[in-house]
Deep mutational scan, measured.
Amino acid sequence: HIECVVCGDKSSGKHYGQFTCEGCKSFFKRSVRRNLTYTCRANRNCPIDQHHRNQCQYCRLKKCLKVGMRREAVQRG
């Protein structure tokens, strides 16, 4: 199976330009649609994997963008 490029979980297909799991797909869509801004409580390099992906939204969104998920691919409302 193909892994989610963000957290390594099982990918459910290509979403917003990259293969991601449902969790990262939904997180990215929600973040972009609502134009959410997050803050990192650590050093902005938190581990984002299957077990830690919900611990830091700032670093999760940063990783989504770093691996090539595209904001412009998210349809507005």
Rank of each mutant, 00 (worst) to 15 (best):
H1R: 11
H1A: 09
H1L: 12
H1C: 05
H1Y: 15
I2L: 06
I2G: 00
I2Q: 02
E3H: 07
E3V: 03
E3K: 06
E3D: 11
E3G: 04
E3Y: 15
E3I: 08
C4D: 02
C4Q: 00
C4K: 01
V5W: 11
V5G: 11
V6S: 01
V6G: 01
V6M: 00
V6N: 00
C7L: 01
C7D: 00
C7Y: 05
C7F: 00
C7P: 00
C7I: 00
G8Q: 14
G8P: 03
G8W: 06
G8L: 12
D9L: 06
D9H: 02
K10A: 05
K10M: 09
K10E: 08
K10W: 06
S11W: 06
S11P: 15
S11V: 04
S12P: 08
S12T: 14
S12F: 08
S12R: 06
S12V: 13
S12H: 08
S12W: 02
G13I: 06
G13T: 08
G13V: 05
G13W: 00
K14G: 05
K14Y: 09
H15R: 04
H15V: 07
H15S: 06
H15A: 10
H15G: 08
Y16C: 13
Y16D: 14
Y16V: 07
Y16L: 07
G17D: 09
G17W: 04
Q18A: 13
Q18Y: 04
Q18C: 15
Q18E: 14
F19K: 06
F19Y: 15
T20W: 09
T20R: 01
T20I: 15
T20A: 09
T20S: 13
C21K: 01
C21G: 01
E22M: 11
E22K: 10
G23C: 11
G23P: 04
G23W: 15
G23S: 07
C24Y: 05
C24Q: 00
C24P: 02
K25D: 15
K25T: 11
K25N: 06
S26L: 10
S26C: 07
F27P: 00
F27S: 01
F28N: 01
F28K: 04
K29H: 10
K29L: 06
K29G: 13
R30K: 15
R30W: 07
R30L: 06
R30E: 12
R30Y: 06
S31A: 12
S31R: 00
S31F: 14
S31M: 01
V32A: 07
V32D: 05
V32E: 09
V32T: 14
R33V: 14
R33D: 11
R33Y: 03
R33K: 10
R34Q: 12
R34D: 15
R34K: 15
N35W: 04
N35C: 15
N35G: 11
N35K: 13
N35I: 03
L36T: 11
L36M: 08
T37N: 13
T37S: 11
T37F: 08
Y38S: 01
Y38M: 09
T39I: 10
T39D: 14
T39M: 07
T39E: 15
T39R: 08
C40P: 00
C40A: 00
R41T: 09
A42D: 11
A42W: 08
A42V: 13
A42G: 15
A42E: 13
A42Q: 15
N43D: 15
N43W: 11
N43K: 12
N43S: 11
R44K: 09
R44E: 13
R44H: 11
R44F: 06
R44V: 05
N45Y: 03
C46V: 04
C46E: 06
C46F: 03
C46Q: 07
P47R: 06
P47M: 05
P47Q: 12
P47A: 11
P47L: 07
I48S: 05
I48A: 04
I48T: 08
I48K: 02
I48N: 07
I48M: 07
D49F: 11
D49C: 02
D49V: 07
Q50R: 08
Q50V: 08
Q50Y: 09
Q50C: 09
Q50W: 09
H51G: 12
H51P: 07
H51K: 13
H51C: 08
H51L: 13
H52F: 09
H52P: 13
R53M: 08
R53I: 07
R53W: 05
R53C: 11
N54A: 10
N54K: 08
N54R: 04
N54T: 09
N54I: 13
Q55F: 13
Q55I: 11
C56Q: 01
C56I: 02
C56V: 01
C56T: 00
Q57R: 06
Q57C: 08
Q57W: 14
Q57H: 12
Q57M: 08
Q57A: 10
Y58A: 11
C59I: 00
C59H: 03
C59Q: 01
C59S: 01
R60D: 03
R60T: 11
R60Y: 11
R60H: 12
L61Q: 04
L61H: 02
L61K: 01
L61N: 02
K62W: 07
K62H: 06
K62A: 12
K63C: 07
K63N: 02
C64N: 02
C64F: 00
C64A: 06
C64L: 03
C64G: 02
L65V: 10
L65W: 07
K66R: 10
K66D: 10
K66M: 12
K66A: 11
K66W: 08
V67K: 07
V67L: 08
V67S: 08
G68P: 00
G68K: 01
G68Q: 02
G68F: 02
M69Q: 01
M69P: 02
M69H: 00
M69S: 01
R70I: 12
R70E: 14
R70T: 12
R70K: 14
R70G: 07
R71H: 08
R71T: 12
R71N: 10
R71C: 09
E72R: 03
E72Q: 05
E72F: 05
E72I: 05
E72A: 06
A73Q: 13
A73V: 09
A73W: 10
A73D: 14
V74G: 08
V74C: 10
V74T: 08
V74Q: 09
V74P: 07
V74N: 09
V74K: 05
Q75M: 08
Q75W: 08
Q75G: 13
Q75T: 12
R76M: 10
R76A: 07
R76E: 14
R76S: 10
R76P: 06
G77K: 14
G77H: 11
G77V: 10
G77Y: 05
